[in-house]
Structures are given as C-alpha cells and as structure tokens.
Simulated assay, not measured.
Amino acid sequence: MRSVRKIANMTTDFNGKVIKKYLCEGCGNEVTVIRAKMLFGPKKGEWFEGKKGCDCEVYEIVRKEQEQAKAARLKRIFDENSLINPALKEATFENFEPNEFGQALQKAKRYVEEFDLGKPKNLFFQGSFGTGKSHLSFSIAKALQEKGYSTIFISTPKLLTKIRTTYGKSEMNEEQIINALADADLVVFDDIGAEGEISGWPIQKLFEVIDQRAGKHNIYTTNLSSSEFEVSKDLRRIFSRMMMDAEPIIMNGTDFRKKQFLKKVKENV
C-alpha cells in the first residue's frame, strides 16, 4: 500500500473506493480517504491511497507567511526606532568577552529566558566604562526580538538629540517618538547620564520618557554611581524610576576597550 497523498477534487468515477472519512485534528475539516488506480504515467494501473478535504498544508503555508511578516515587522520597529552606536551592532551573548563578568552574562541570559509580558521586570546595569553593560543590553534586545517581541535599544544622548530635531523640520514629531517607545515590549535606555546635564530640559524630558514606561520591561545602563544620582532633584527622580522593579547588575572593572588597545600597543612595540 502506497503512502497517503492529498488529492484535489477526486471522485470515485475511475474505479476509486472511499475507504474512510474522519475529522482532521489540524484544520477541523472532514477528510475523505480514497483508494484508486493511477490513470496515467509510468505507474499507471497501480493502486494508491489519497485524501481530499484537508487544508493543513494551506494553513501551514499561511502560518509561515504570517511568522515571516511578523519577524519583518519586529525588525523594522527595531531598526527604525533604535539609536545604536555602530560598534554595538554585532554584539551577541556569544561574543561577550570580559570574563570577569560571567555572572552578569548569566543574569542577562536568564532575563531573556524568563521574559514574561505579564510580569514586568527591569534590569539596571551600573558600573565603570568599557565593562560590557551596553553589549549585554543590546544582546538581550536582539535575543528577545528573535523570540517575537518588539524591542528598542536607544542611546539616551542620541534620543534627546533626536527629540530636539523634531522641534524644527523632521519626518517624525516628538509624540511619534515617545509613542514608539511606549508601545514596545522592551526598551533599553543606554548610557543614562552621558548627556552631561543634571538639570533643565534634557533631564526633565528623560524623566518624562522613562516615567511613561513605568510598569513595562526596561533595561537601563549608566556609568553614574548611586551617589552621583543624588546631586540634583531631577536626577533623584530618574534614579527612583530606574530602581522600580529592577534587578541591579554592578559591573565595575577594567575598561575592556582600553585593555584591548593596550594589548595592540604592546604587540606593536
């Protein structure tokens, strides 16, 4: 007996015989299984079994097309709204090198594994320059995008610059930028404090953006110490929002970029 194949518009007018009928668990349609002879070709006269009525193959094609469309949409959201330093674009968990921060790497991976839209959780990467805070945060955003979540990675100094440009001629207005950030499943606010101002419009605007993300998944990275967040009322307000539902990951250590540079200098001496 040959394997069952799908037959479109088959009848029993050509020595065919209906063997059975059943409801397909996949598509829910009534499926008819027919035994018939090949009417032409090299196997003419041989018996085979075929079925009609099942739409599982069609549904599978549609499902794959929908998945591809969703993946393309998520990538477009990430690419169009993220503001990323070029050096970070190839960052992954696999090429994270500062070995002294293995525990931070494991926490970052666990965040991806345990990500649940119904249970918002923040990560707060704090520490000195060049220790891999941005690398791990970017890796988390990319990994979650690949799992089907909408993510945005944004350098806070670049964000403030982008918002400023909307006050002149710009393709996007401030409301569109803030709405894009508000709607994402995860937003990474990278390099908070690098804008260099501790009061005025930049800090007030940053607080506004972070505040509208309350109750959602966020990741923050900063080189500022906890005491440096205490120097102004506006910074204290931002620091308070960042600590909400957040797991701190402290990464103080050797500047990896400086270490790599000095290694190259030594090799060329």
Rank of each mutant, 00 (worst) to 15 (best):
F124V: 03
F124A: 07
F125Q: 07
F125V: 01
F125E: 06
Q126L: 13
T131Y: 11
T131A: 11
G132D: 14
K133W: 08
S134E: 12
H135L: 09
H135A: 10
L136V: 08
S137V: 07
S139C: 07
I140W: 08
A141Q: 07
K142H: 02
K142R: 15
A143T: 11
E146M: 04
S150F: 00
S150A: 12
I152D: 09
T156Y: 06
L159H: 05
L160A: 07
T161D: 15
T165C: 01
T165G: 01
K169Q: 11
S170T: 04
E171V: 13
E171T: 14
N173V: 00
N173D: 15
Q176I: 00
I177L: 10
I178P: 01
N179F: 03
A180V: 03
L181V: 10
L181K: 07
V188G: 09
F189L: 10
D190C: 04
D191T: 04
D191E: 14
D191F: 09
G193Q: 02
A194K: 12
G196K: 05
E197T: 13
P202G: 07
P202H: 09
I203H: 01
Q204C: 00
K205P: 00
L206T: 02
L206C: 08
F207P: 12
F207Q: 07
F207A: 04
I210G: 06
Q212S: 04
R213W: 06
G215N: 05
K216C: 04
I219N: 15
T222D: 02
N223T: 01
L224I: 01
L224E: 00
S225W: 02
S225N: 08
S226I: 12
V231H: 02
V231M: 06
S232Q: 06
K233T: 14
K233V: 13
L235P: 11
R237P: 00
R237H: 01
R241L: 04
M243S: 15
M244N: 14
E247D: 12
P248L: 09
P248F: 10
P248R: 14
I249S: 02
T254W: 05
D255N: 15
D255P: 07
F256H: 11
R257V: 04
L262F: 12
L262A: 02
K263W: 06
